[in-house]
Amino acid sequence: MNNIIAVILLSIGILFNLFGCIGLIRLPDVYNRLQSATKCVTLGTCSILLSLLFFFGFKEIGIKSILAIIMLFFAATVAAHALVRGAYIFGIKLGDRSVVDHYKNANEKNKEEEK
């Protein structure tokens, strides 16, 4: 029974990874790619690690997989913040289809203060 739940969770995780990777290829600019990739791939990998817990039960490997989920969660979100901020400061423009940009003014103000 536990094995079947584990394989179902594993399949769901790989399906979400697939969506994330399709988004990485299809979407038009860096920011949108990061959106799709971070969210889908993080939840997919969390699901894969959770399936490990169902497969082995609360033994050594299951507890380690829970720790890996917590670490992966914080690591992925913080890396996404850092990447999107770095990309903006580097000067990569938002895509053609974007509508508003409130960050532009704040960013210019910051640059003047640094000088």
Binding site: L27, P28, S36, G95, V99, V100
Partner: peptide
């Protein structure tokens, strides 16, 4: 949004 053929996105940065 990713799988839809027309990609219904309207991105922007808000405060």
């Amino acid at each position: 949004r990713v799988l839809h053929p027309a990609m219904p996105i309207k991105p922007g940065i808000v405060k």
